[in-house]
Design a protein around this nucleic acid. Structure first.
Lengths: 354, 354
DNA sequence: CTGTTAGCGCCTTCAT
DNA sequence: ATGAAGGCGCTAACAG
């Protein structure tokens, strides 16, 4: 654009044809009040010269960009990629363009991304927030910028969101492990500031409680939500004196890291240790050991997030409660979970009953 | 933006402070000729009101957007996701924003994406082309819009590109299979219009030729480049009278589909059949059977593509030859390939020597 | 049916 | 050091 690019404008067309620029504008926008002959000449000319409308100028006057922003932590993570796909495809089929920004779970990057989106005057934003701070969220709220949260929600404010029922999903996974006889179940998860982390811990506790298994806070390990951290955490965990007989990982990504560690230690899944994940990313079924996991509908989350957002934008709907949606997850039992064998595990609870 | 969003402009700041709008503009852009006191007042006001500059307006006058476009087939595919990450992170650290569009390997969508980018007046475009048609590419060329191809290149034109040495990569993989005793090697690949498909076939032939194994065109199967197609193609292939003893898949994604099929048929890898992929996506090492594959540096491809593009943009460099780069791939041997066993394979070549 | 005028938000050039 | 004028490309409102 800055270069010597051949970018032609309606002015060029107008000049060539000896008409006024807004006759050109009207013809190009299929507005009435243009004679068929003139219209044809203009269309022909535009086509021949390779006219491409300048969206910047158009948006500047229209006051809308038909563009939405999507802010999430990591597009290389298939989980977010799938949500992004849901948002993008739905947006596109509704005439909207999506701008995506990755934050790498970094607060500053997230705030910059929000500013970027705002400076580009997107009509609305979909955010999967890092939840390290939230004044940029509250600013969106007070400036009446349409936005919706996905995966996570900020308890401090009433906002629109689309999440899955994290507590119930975690409950299903842990209940499954418990039903296989596991009592010593470690939950590897992320930072406690994240709403879904909290909710899944609640589900974990709920499932234990139901079977009168005491809750041991030491069994909840807070790492970072990366494959690498899943690997390191599991490695350390399995080398302790009392390794668990089962692991419930916050995400499939974390679980994949766990698989790597378990394999490296020469242990077998589920023979030595059972493993369950969360999300059901596409690769979960192709893994070393097909992974038992809790499926959440990523694509649909993206899709519905956009649908809510578009309503907020177009109806200028300021009541967030109408746009808070919780989708139900589903337990997918594959081969990474099995009956407790006690091969490597010590059972402190039964040995030293509370 | 269309809604009642509180979006404030330099005009608002000017009005509040009783100064002219371009004093505000100068202060906000750290230009000289503003008294310290005025500058402070303006900055304070901007900050307090939550001023966010309007990039649309700024770009309109500046004639550049500091935005680039990235067009590729599928962001959910970790291969493209990784390239996208390379582009996006490099762009961001250079002050550029990236707009991404997925084409699903569809020609019309690709052309629409190009038009979208052009209408948004991106400063340049990175494209992994579908190669079904190329007049949109030639239009970029004749309109002097800076762009660079990745992964694939269009032979018809001299353009900038960053690709990997596909022929050599394929050669390495097939040479490896041949060295394990395989003679009946099927190559599952994509449509012949794609440059990398052609080049990898050449590498496949080269490796066979070197060991005087006759080339049988029937062993090159053209499917689509999706996991699903890899699955279906392999299923059909393994049910024929003369299934191969090894498969070289165009991509890891295709190979994962093949794994699914092979597993479903109750066959073992590499016991019954050896399998090699291409790309080395992150999951390749965590698969059912860790996959032997040809690693190409996806992140670096994205990174270098941006670096070339920025040169083309800033130096208005119209000599594409300086921006044609071929990166070297690397064979990664894992567990999905092994010595030929002849368990399920018939060897038409040795049985019926040519 | 067509042209003129004005303005979206911002920046550049030239006066003051 | 500051303001006024003009224009980026486009569209809306009005005039002819």
């Amino acid at each position: 654009m800055a270069n010597g690019a051949n970018v032609i404008t309606i002015k060029d067309i107008a000049k060539e044809l000896g008409v006024s620029i807004n006759t050109v504008s009207r013809a190009l926008n299929n507005k009435p009040d243009v004679s068929p002959i003139t219209r044809d000449r203009i269309l022909e000319s535009a086509n021949r010269l390779g006219y491409v409308p300048n969206t910047l100028a158009r948006s500047l006057v229209a006051g809308e960009t038909c563009t939405i922003g999507l802010i999430c932590s990591d597009l290389v993570n298939p989980f977010y990629a799938r949500i992004a796909q849901g948002v993008e495809e739905t947006a596109r089929s509704n005439g909207y363009t999506t701008i995506i920004a990755s934050t790498n779970e970094d607060d500053i990057t997230e705030r910059q991304a929000v500013d970027l989106m705002r400076s580009k005057r997107v009509d609305g934003i979909v955010i999967s927030p890092t939840q390290q701070s939230h004044d940029h969220i509250s600013r969106l709220l007070q400036d009446h910028i349409p936005f919706i949260l996905v995966n996570r929600h900020v308890e401090e404010f009433q906002t629109a969101y689309v999440i899955n029922n994290n507590q119930h999903g975690a409950y299903l996974a842990v209940q499954h492990l418990v039903s296989l006889g596991h009592k010593h179940i470690t939950h590897i998860t992320g930072p406690l500031r994240i709403s879904s982390v909290k909710e899944r811990i609640n589900g974990y506790r709920q499932a234990l409680q139901e079977k009168d298994i005491p809750f041991d806070p030491n069994l909840v390990i807070h790492s970072d939500l990366t494959l690498e951290c899943g690997y390191k955490t599991t490695l350390k965990l399995m080398k302790t004196k009392t390794p668990p007989s089962a692991i419930f990982a916050y995400s499939d990504h974390l679980a994949i890291g766990a698989i790597k560690a378990i394999r490296e230690l020469g242990l077998s899944i589920p023979g030595d240790i059972s493993l369950a994940g969360y999300d059901d990313i596409e690769y979960a079924q192709f893994l070393d050991i097909p992974l038992t996991t809790v499926r959440q509908p990523m694509y649909e989350i993206g899709q519905r997030a956009f649908n809510h957002l578009i309503e907020i934008i177009q109806l200028n709907d300021l009541n967030p409660k109408k746009h808070q949606e919780i989708l139900e997850p589903e337990l997918i039992i594959r081969e990474s979970t099995g009956r407790v064998t006690g091969k490597i595990s010590h059972f402190p609870y039964t040995e030293n009953p509370a």
